[in-house]
């Protein structure tokens, strides 16, 4: 073969090369376009409500489709409170699991237990919802909430969080379901950052007589602080945006009650419940406004989490 015979072949290869390269490049760009498209859609959709209600939307509790007066304080409150309750339960348990799996558990058992915990993350959120509504809520209503009302309801200060009738569904129930859902994410990130703590540092601590718990608490935890906070924030981001599981057990009340046992609502469950039935430009647009708030909130939290995790050398990519 002479070089001339090869020319068509080389040209063809080069053409495909350009096309393939362009395809991969535009696919990568699509990720950015997707983000831009989502933000633009939310802002355009929310525009009428933004114009009518302005920033005061965030501070108004009223949500009245009949008089077309809308405010996002109720859902915002519910979103934040359920997520905080979730963290309150999920963080200590995840920490315990991570410590157990990295320090205590016999090596042969680590894999199976870690896998089992991570399977919790793959159960679809709708299944958590139906389980929360039919199994967890009745238990809370029958056994836990009456006790809380009797024993904690009279306490000064925090007592008002535990007053009113035991509905079963409400902020506390939603927070508990969320806690179960975010637990595998937080514990797997914590496990990863614990594992990255330098062995020499731990050995040095053992060398001066530290117990295993001393090493965890005074060496491993301070060393992996950024990663721990990143993992917790990643869980928070999940909890803020979780939709179906919460929609089942939150009770859908726009009114804010002091009690954690009362029905409430969250941004995502308002959208899930009301969007397909919303009539009127302002109603639909107010739901978009809520969506925009939710997106900004979760974006900030998750972006912060990712930055922190990147600082502790890229843990949590899978979560």
């Amino acid at each position: 073969m002479t070089p001339d015979d090869l020319r068509p072949h080389v040209c063809r290869e080069a053409r495909i090369e350009r096309a393939f390269r362009a395809a991969t490049f535009s696919s990568a760009l699509l990720v950015l376009i997707l983000l831009a498209g989502v933000v633009a859609t939310l802002i355009i959709g929310a525009w009428p409500a933004l114009k009518t209600f302005g920033a005061g939307f965030v501070l108004r509790e009223k949500w009245n489709p009949v008089t077309e007066v809308f405010g996002g304080l109720g859902p915002l409150y519910g979103t934040v409170v359920t997520s905080l309750i979730a963290l309150l339960f999920a963080v200590p348990v995840s920490f315990g699991i991570a410590v157990f799996l990295t320090e205590v558990c016999p090596r042969w058992l680590r894999g199976p237990i870690a896998t089992a915990i991570e399977l919790l993350a793959s159960i679809p959120s709708i299944v958590y919802g139906i389980w929360g509504l039919f199994v967890l809520a009745p238990i809370l209503q029958r056994d836990v909430q009456p006790w809380l009302i009797d024993h904690w309801g009279a306490l000064p200060g925090i007592g008002r969080w535990f007053q009113g009738p035991p509905y079963g569904i409400g902020l506390l129930t939603a927070g508990l379901v969320l806690a179960i859902m975010i637990l595998p994410f937080i514990s797997s990130v914590m496990r990863e950052v614990f594992r990255m703590a330098p062995v020499s540092l731990k050995e040095a601590a053992y060398g001066i007589g530290a117990t295993r718990w001393n090493v965890v608490w005074h060496v491993v935890v301070p060393w992996s602080r950024a990663g721990l906070v990143g993992g917790i924030m990643l869980g928070l981001g999940r909890a803020l945006g979780e939709t179906m599981a919460v929609t089942f057990v939150i009770g859908n009340a726009h009114r804010i009650s002091a009690s954690l046992l009362a029905p409430a609502t969250t941004i995502s469950s308002v959208i899930a419940n009301e969007f397909s039935e919303a009539v009127g430009e302002l109603y639909v647009s107010s739901l978009f406004y809520l969506g925009l708030l939710l997106f900004m909130l979760t974006f900030a939290v998750i972006a912060g989490a990712r930055l922190l995790l990147r600082m502790s050398s890229g843990a949590g990519r899978g979560a």
Partner: peptide
């Protein structure tokens, strides 16, 4: 690539109901 990877990681954990709103409009 750094930017795309970061945004992709964020989208991975973003609320999926927002995707619903996006496709509804689109």
């Amino acid at each position: 690539s750094t930017v795309v990877r970061f945004i992709n990681d964020v989208l991975l954990s973003a609320p999926s109901i927002i995707i619903g709103l996006f496709i509804y409009t689109l």
